[in-house]
């Protein structure tokens, strides 16, 4: 039911790697290391590898995911270089794939969404791939 979304992408959104947001995020994952937040000992600070969770990637038209019942199956990050505090980055998302498989608990839908972060010159900094599993019960609810 999401097949028609394959290949659709969002409009690019500019995001800022905010110092306060990085500090709060590093603390929330129990990793308040100076490399993320001490700008006296480090000429520049990095963001934790899973920080891109925080960014706005824009809306993919026509992709209406249910608010409840989704299962996060996989998450993959790829970095060309570290992400630094204070950078402005351009973010967008794209539906990479959707397919259905039969399993123990009925038919499962697998939605693969890719998200990208680029610098202002359009050079790729990171990409991430998220696999979301949509159970049959949830999909049945959506058809009503």
């Amino acid at each position: 039911m999401f097949e028609q979304s394959i290949g659709k992408r969002s409009k690019t959104v500019k995001n800022m790697v905010e110092r306060g947001a990085v500090k709060k995020f590093a603390e929330a994952i129990g990793d308040p290391h100076p490399i993320f937040m001490d700008d006296v000992s480090y000429s520049r600070n990095m963001a934790p590898p899973t920080f891109p969770r925080v960014f706005d990637y824009g809306v993919i038209e026509g992709l209406d995911l249910p608010k409840k019942g989704l299962i996060h199956g996989e998450q993959n990050y790829h970095y060309e270089r570290p992400l630094y505090v204070g950078e402005e980055i351009l973010c967008y998302a794209e539906v990479e794939d959707y397919y259905e498989r039969s399993g123990k608990s009925g038919d499962m839908g697998f939605l693969k969404v890719k998200r990208y972060g680029e610098d202002l010159e359009g050079q790729r900094i990171f990409s991430e791939e998220q696999v979301v599993i949509i159970t049959e019960a949830v999909r049945r609810g959506m058809r009503v």
Partner: peptide, 23 residues
């Protein structure tokens, strides 16, 4: 996010290029 902190002490020598997880 928590799991990645095993690598934080080494960020002066490099960075995580790929981080793939199955839940």
């Amino acid at each position: 996010g928590n799991l990645a902190k095993l690598f934080t002490p080494f960020y002066e020598e490099g960075f995580i290029q790929n981080y793939s997880i199955r839940f």
